[in-house]
Design a binder for these strands. Structure first.
Length: 429
RNA sequence: GGAGGGGUGGCAGAGCGGUUUAAUGCACUGGUCUUGAAAACCAGCGAGGGCGAAAGUCCUCCGAGAGUUCGAAUCUCUCCCCCUCCGCCA
């Protein structure tokens, strides 16, 4: 959420910045709303003040044994006027807040202008797409060809029978490779990058989703549970982990907080009908190792560079060719102020596909969550900055390994870094 | 699922219709003392918001929401969360 005071004092500037994100801030509407709010609030508070002082008078008079019926008579009129203005104020404040919850974060000045993927700025490339002297298979074919006992190592048909479209069953060596990836990533970030491992609920309440920005605007992308309470399956570990600091005032010594978390992620993919329908690129359920950092405001820009580097390190150790891009305004997510995407090379598609998204949300999520720290310089609670990035999406990493490490016989070479997690197995066949 | 007990400022913890402007302690900040520190003593110290150039001033907040009342941390209802015991259970 943006600072309401900034909305009031520099609406035009914000509107200009938000245009980069293809969002039109309705400055006239907000101005009008605020003018009415101001008027009603002044009236309401004056009436409250009057009620308070008269009530005190009654208390005093009663104690002194005086008659209060005279004062009491004037109170009923005051009460109804007060209730009416409080009701009006509530309506206006709710309207203002509802609008604000739907306004995206302001993009950083360094964010490239542009509408879609093509406008993203290439930052760097690592490795070289492999050359094959045989017809390249995609991961669906490779997975079907690997030995797995009963059924296929990657079995989309079985998943569609037991559940439906956009799910997958993994068996045997592929299931193991998948598990190895999660372990490998966790260990790397814990041992070498200074993250604390954390295990969180896979179900969260609506407030948590509002906090990180998935609600209210993206309700149709979430899996909502049946039942009395507003519970949702997490779309990413970002939600529970970032909400670790909800409603807290952290001590300066607790920052930065760095968490790494391996969870399943559940997404309705409501906006993705018809795209990536083949294979496990876009599923309703996938696993991800997520990096989350909570920092002091002045540290978040550096932290994003570091965090992105931590995610890149996974790709490098797995020897997967990738590139890093800075998302343009049109591609930037709702809550982000700046995002690097890491894209891995997929031989079957002859292009780079997103495998990690690393973002700085500055104080946008913190304000929604009321996540603060006590700044020793001011002695006051101030909003923290939040960041996160995939390190990495496990399903897509599996796809990348199957495709990039395939050989002419239909086998798959296991990247060196994963072999300790695979009992030394060097090749799946 | 059943029966109880609770949710109060950064933390602990009193208050259970009207001088509550929420006691007290801890923590924190400043000062006195000290070669320095500790201790002791003195003082300050919650959050959010409105108006205002500022000084300041007003409003809101005692888990959440609704209600009773001239007036609610305090009474009533609903919900959420935590603790103890019993039952069930991986």
């Amino acid at each position: 959420m943006l600072d309401p005071r900034r909305i009031r004092s520099e609406a035009e500037t914000l509107a200009g910045k938000l245009a980069k994100k293809k969002f039109t801030l309705d400055v006239a509407y907000l101005g009008d709303l605020d003018a009415r709010r101001k008027e009603i609030q002044l009236a309401a508070e004056a009436l409250q003040n009057e009620r308070n002082s008269r009530s005190k008078e009654i208390g005093k008079a009663k104690q002194e044994g005086r008659d209060v019926s005279e004062i009491l008579r004037t109170m009923s009129d005051l009460k109804s006027r007060l209730e009416e203005s409080q009701r009006q104020l509530q309506v206006l404040q709710d309207e203002f807040r509802d609008y604000l919850l739907g306004v995206p974060n302001v993009p950083a000045d360094e964010v490239p202008e542009g509408d879609g993927e093509a406008a993203n700025r290439l930052e760097s490339e690592w490795g070289h797409p492999p050359q094959f002297d045989f017809p390249v298979k995609d991961h669906v074919e490779i997975g079907a060809g690997l030995a797995a006992g009963t059924g296929e190592a990657l079995d989309f048909a079985a998943a569609s029978r037991m559940t439906g479209a956009r799910f997958v069953v993994m068996q045997g060596p592929v299931a193991r490779l998948h598990r190895a990836l999660g372990q490998f990533m966790l260990d790397l970030h814990i041992r070498e990058h200074g993250y604390t491992e954390i295990n969180v609920p896979f179900i969260v309440n609506a407030d948590s989703l509002v906090g990180t920005g998935q609600l209210p605007k993206f309700a149709e992308d979430q899996f909502k549970l049946q039942g009395k309470q507003d519970f949702y399956l997490i779309p990413t570990a970002e939600v529970p982990v970032t909400n670790m600091v909800r409603d807290r005032i952290l001590d300066a010594s607790e920052l930065p907080a760095r968490w790494v978390c391996h969870t399943p992620c559940f997404r309705q993919e409501a906006g993705g009908y018809g795209v990536d329908t083949r294979g496990m690129i876009r599923q309703h359920q996938f696993e991800k190792v997520e990096l989350v950092q909570i920092t002091r405001p002045e540290d978040s820009a550096t932290a994003l560079e570091e965090l992105t580097g931590h995610a890149e390190r996974v790709l490098q150790l797995l020897e997967l060719p990738y590139r890093k891009v800075a998302l343009c305004g049109g591609d930037l997510g709702f809550s982000a102020n700046f995002t690097y995407d890491l894209e891995v090379w997929l031989p079957s598609q002859q292009c780079y596909r997103e495998i990690s998204s690393c973002s700085n949300f500055d104080e946008f999520q913190a304000r929604r969550m009321q996540a603060r720290w006590r700044n020793p310089a001011s002695g006051k609670p101030e909003f923290v900055h939040t960041l996160n990035g995939s390190g990495l999406a496990i399903g897509r990493t599996l796809v990348a390994i199957l495709e990039n490490c395939q050989d002419a016989e239909g086998g798959v070479g296991v990247p060196r870094a994963l072999r300790p997690y695979m009992d030394g197995v060097e090749r799946l066949e």
